[in-house]
Structures are given as structure tokens and as C-alpha cells.
Nucleic acid binder design. Structure first.
Lengths: 341, 341
DNA sequence: CTGTTAGCGCGTTCAG
DNA sequence: CTGAACGCGCTAACAG
């Protein structure tokens, strides 16, 4: 019943040499004649030999595998981040195990155990919204498995992370609205225990301050990150005793819901209200016709985070570094061509 | 420099018993006293023991890992399919290696080799558009590694696949348009070497025939699957000497481009033109306000495909079965609430 | 119920 | 330059 796997022993036997030599030849060791190398290689391809990474990895105690933990694969930002991760990892000969925490701390813990059991060489992690203590990360530290946060990170120092410059992005966004003559600028925010939403909020506030636009607590509407929150937020916003003429939306999904609801109640965008929001490839189709967006490239963050992690893996001295790489964003103002909607 | 990994030998030594007993205890074998089990388990957690799956897998020659090959992770349909795959796999204690072919046959081949080297227990694959010969799949067959196609499949018989009922979906879509009194129904199609687009085309044609609506070759506009193709297609369509009043769009991305362009030239949807198109969670935000959609659940397909694969893996007799599971779709007609856009 | 022995397939000593 | 022997960590088979 077992599949007839070809091993180095088989090809050694056929060639009348020792399996060690075969191993060395296959690894292109300088201590083997080119002649035997050729012989071995030929036989190997002939028999359809395929190195057993399991055994090899066990021996070398290295797996060439990275663990990736994201809240949810189907959120486009994470999907494109994974694409970036996979791209960089693949080029360096690494595989990737993708796991979703589904925003649950418990699952996050169990995933980390799985990754440990699989002896991954490193971990990339974007923490769940629920996660507020980081005990489960100690397991990684103990085994000195390097890990890098991306996008969502924790505020404990001594860790490497790759994040977008949320403060700066939010500042620019709000500044943009102010320059467009908005005076009552609402801010749809996300869970404040997540650094990114906190920083976006702070950037918003800082811009208001700089331009002496009064900050109003009520104009900051926080919600979880569901599309229907967009509509809910708009309802709350319209019920306020201010004529809101600008909106900075800290989350793309919420922005979609908000824009659709605004349109449904006949608010004109951008005439009645100017909006700036975060976006990404897919949601941009919805958001962009209506507003200026902040481009948030998952692909780039994935790439950067992975090469940082690979550095830590290969460079022993960098193992305990705690860099923070900040990926800058830029505002993309809509061209008028599609605004005729 | 090596991390001090705790092995079953360590804990065996400390407890003064044999490592096999520890192994059995950890595997909850019935052939070990509850007492020793408790002892072992306690010591294990105390020392922070973590089973080395590599060694275990090597011994058992089973990896509890599935390979997944998709054209592109960041396409939402595949992202949600992966979510479904991961979900079902995780529940059954399986890990998943995600790979992207990026629509390249060459990469597809190389990926399969990697998966073979990693000794995956099974493979889920959605073939690239470029793939027209299937020699690289022979490697899987040779090693009798079960595999299941999903969504995009090849037309070679003797394989298991999970697909949506494209013919039926297209038929229903076209029928819906006909019942809405459309008489000149255009069809935006995709590459005809892919079964799904062929079947969608055939379903469209069959519906026209059934209701004796004349079929016009020119109304079928085929393109690759880029968003800008949507606009291009619309331009071609509007240049035709027919007053098109219905459109069946076989691809969501193209649909987005088409709708946006139609709106930009002041065509009213659905008054001037009724549209039915395939959609998924994300694009639905864009498409749904405008048209009736065919729900295409990546999650469900992922789930179904994975459980089929797991069956083949565990059930020796099912290994060489060649089932085709057809996941039905349903039309979702827009409620009017959001149509006020 | 537990211990002993023997590998899974490979890479790395140490000899020659 | 090559061969022999050992062990990575775990589990299956066979004893007792």
C-alpha cells in the first residue's frame, strides 16, 4: 500500500556507491567529483527522485517554513499582504503556513502552538482585535523563534514591526479636508486598543489642532469594523447638532457602508461632504469614485515584513533587533473622469 | 546556540520511565495507566514540551498538511475559498500550504514539486488560465497523492472536482433577464479554454434558445478578466447596431468596470439596461446596488472541496473515486432599499 | 501495562 | 574523494 518513494539509498544501491555520496552529490558538495555528481543527478531525475524535506529538515532542524497569522484571509488587505509575504518567501526558498485567528485570542494561542510544533523558522503576525495580553508570544521568545508584527501590532517594546504611518496618514487626510474648507470634520474610528486606530485618531486630532479647528468629542464615532457600522455611524452623525461637511474614515469597510448610506439619503459626495478614507485595491472601486483615498498597500507591507523576518532568521546578530519599519502612505485624489456618477 | 528543545527522552529520564511510554501517554494510548498518563502530562506541560511534528510525521509518513494552489490569493473568490479550506482543514487537524500560480504554468509545475517534496497528504488545485496540458499532475498520481480540483478544473475525466453549476447559473441569469422583458441581451464572457466561462456561455445560449430569443454572435464579447476590460466591452457593445437592454456578465471584476463605465456615460441601471452578474462578498458592494447577482460562495466551495479531499485521504477505497460535486448558486435580486443611489 | 529494539530518510561526523 | 556509522525525535513491532 505504501507508495514506492525513491530515496538516496535506492539510487546509491543502483549506482553501487554509498548513500552519503549521493547525499553530498545532491547537495552539490565540493567534496564530490563532478563525474559522480553527474551520474547521481542523472539517475535521480531518471527515477523521479524527490528529496524528502521532512527528513532533511529534521536532521537540520530547520524547516524553511514561515508561519503567518492574520485575523481573516478574506479581508482584502490581508489577502494582498499574504500575497506579498508569499512572494518574498518563495523567492528565498521558504514556504508559508497561513492561519486565521478570526479575531479570537484563543485561536491565536492555539495557532502559535501549532506553529511551534511544526518548527517554523519564523512568524509574521497581525494580532487579533481581541488580543490585549501577549503571554502566548512568550513561547516564541523562549524558543528564540524570530517574529515580526505587521499592520496590527502590540505596544510592547522590544519587538520588530512593519506598519504604515497611521499618524501621518491621518494627519494628511484631515489636513486635506481642512484645506478643502471643511470645518466640521467627523471621524469614523475603530477599536482604540488597536494601535493603528489610536494613531489614526491622534493624527486626526493633531491636524485639527494645528489649524485651530475646534475638536469635538461627539464627532468621533467609534465602532467595530462591519459594513453595517458605516450606516449606523452616519445615522449617529446626522443626528448631531452640527452640519458635518468633512469625514475622515479610518476603515475601508466602514467607509463603504457609510458612502452607500449617505448616497441613499441623497447626500452628495463630495459637494455636501468631503470624505477621505483608507482604501485598497478592491474597495477602491467603491470608495474612489466618491472620495480622496489613502493608499494602503498590503503587498508592500507583506514584502517588507518578510524580508525583515528573513534577515532575522539568517543573521544571528540581528535576531534580537527591534526595528520598526514605517511604510509611508500617500493621498490619492480622485480624477474627475469617474466622478460623473 | 541551539535552542534547548524538550524531547520525550528528557521527560522520560526525569520520570525514570521509557520514552516509548511517554510517547504513548502523550498520544493518549489506551495501553497506559491513567496514573502515568497524568504524571507524564504534568511533567510535559511543566517543561513546556511541544511535540516535534517533523519527527512524528517522518515516522508516520503522514504530514497532516494539504497543498493548495490558486491563481492569485488576492482575488476575493480565492481568498474566501482559502478561508473555507482552512476552516475545514483546521477542524480536522490539518495544516495548509497556500501557493499562488499567478496564472503561470511554469510556476504551477514548480509548486507541485515543492508540495511533493514537503510530502503533503493531498492537494486542492484551481488551475491557471495558461494551463492546457496536465503532465505536471502526473507526479501526484504517481505518488498516489489525492487531489481535488475546485472552481477552475480541467476537462480530463477521472478526477474529482468541486465546481459551481455554471451552466445552470448562466441559464437562470439569462432567463431572469428575458422575463424582465430584455430582448437584446449581451454577454461579457471570459477565456473559452476555461470550463467555467464556456459553461456560462452555453447556459446563456440555452436560455435564449428556450425562449426563442435570437442569438447574435456579436453580442458575445470575450475578454480577459481585468477591470478595464469592463469599460472596453461596454464601448464595443454600445457601438453595435442593436439597442442592448440586458447584460449577463460572466465575471465580477469585469462587471465592476462595466457598471462604472455605464454610469459614467449616463446609462441608467436597471432602467436602461438590466444586468445580472456573478459576485462575491466584496464586489457585491459595488455590483449589488445595480443589479441582480449570482451568489458565488468561495467559502462553501472551499469547505466542500476540502472535506471531499479529506475523505479521499482517509478512505482508502475512495482514493481513486472521481466524483464531481456541483455546488448550486442562486440569484439574488436586489431589494429596492439601496437602489435609490 | 511497560521496556526494548529498530527504523522513518537524511546529513554529518569520523575514518580511511 | 568516498564509505561506515550514528543520530535528529518519534512511533510501531515485538517482547515480557
Amino acid at each position: 500500500m505504501d507508495t514506492n518513494e525513491v530515496t538516496i539509498h535506492h539510487i546509491a544501491e543502483i549506482l553501487g556507491i554509498n548513500s552519503s555520496t549521493v547525499s553530498r552529490a545532491l547537495n552539490n558538495s565540493p567534496r564530490v567529483t563532478q563525474k559522480t555528481k553527474d551520474k547521481v543527478l542523472k539517475k535521480a531525475t531518471e527515477l523521479g527522485y524527490q528529496r524528502n524535506h521532512l527528513a532533511s529538515n529534521l536532521r537540520k532542524s530547520k524547516t524553511f517554513t514561515l508561519g503567518v497569522i492574520v485575523p481573516r484571509i478574506s479581508r482584502h488587505f490581508f489577502a494582498s499582504a499574504i500575497a506579498g509575504i508569499e512572494e518574498t518567501a518563495f523567492k528565498a526558498g521558504y514556504n508559508v503556513i497561513i492561519c486565521q485567528s478570526l479575531e479570537s485570542l484563543e485561536r491565536e494561542q492555539s495557532i502559535i502552538n501549532t506553529l511551534l510544533a511544526n518548527r517554523v523558522d519564523g512568524v509574521l503576525i497581525s494580532i487579533s482585535m481581541e488580543t490585549k495580553n501577549y503571554d502566548h508570544l512568550k513561547g516564541l521568545k523562549q524558543r528564540s523563534i524570530p517574529f515580526v508584527f505587521f499592520d496590527r501590532h502590540c505596544n510592547i517594546s522590544g519587538n520588530s514591526k512593519v506598519v504604515i504611518d497611521d499618524f501621518d496618514a491621518a494627519f494628511k487626510a484631515t489636513e486635506h479636508l481642512i484645506k478643502k474648507k471643511s470645518t466640521e470634520i467627523a471621524h469614523f474610528s475603530g477599536p482604540q486598543n488597536l494601535e493603528i486606530y489610536k494613531n489614526r485618531f491622534l493624527g486626526y486630532k493633531a491636524a485639527l489642532e494645528k489649524y485651530s479647528v475646534p475638536f469635538r468629542e461627539e464627532l468621533v464615532i467609534t465602532s467595530s469594523l462591519m459594513e453595517h457600522d458605516g450606516a449606523e455611524n452616519v445615522k449617529k452623525m446626522l443626528a448631531l447638532p452640527y452640519k458635518v461637511d468633512g469625514l475622515f474614515c479610518a476603515n475601508d469597510v466602514v467607509a463603504i457602508g457609510a458612502i452607500q448610506y449617505l448616497k441613499s439619503v441623497h447626500v452628495k459626495i463630495p459637494e455636501d461632504i468631503a470624505i477621505v478614507g483608507f482604501s485598497n485595491e478592491t474597495t477602491s472601486s467603491v470608495i474612489e469614485p466618491a472620495l480622496t483615498t489613502i493608499n494602503q498597500s498590503g503587498l508592500e507591507i507583506g514584502n517588507v515584513a518578510t524580508s525583515l523576518l528573513l534577515q532575522k532568521i539568517s543573521n544571528e546578530s540581528k535576531k534580537n533587533s527591534n526595528e520598526t519599519i514605517i511604510v509611508k502612505t500617500n493621498l490619492i485624489e480622485r480624477k474627475s473622469s469617474l466622478r460623473k456618477v
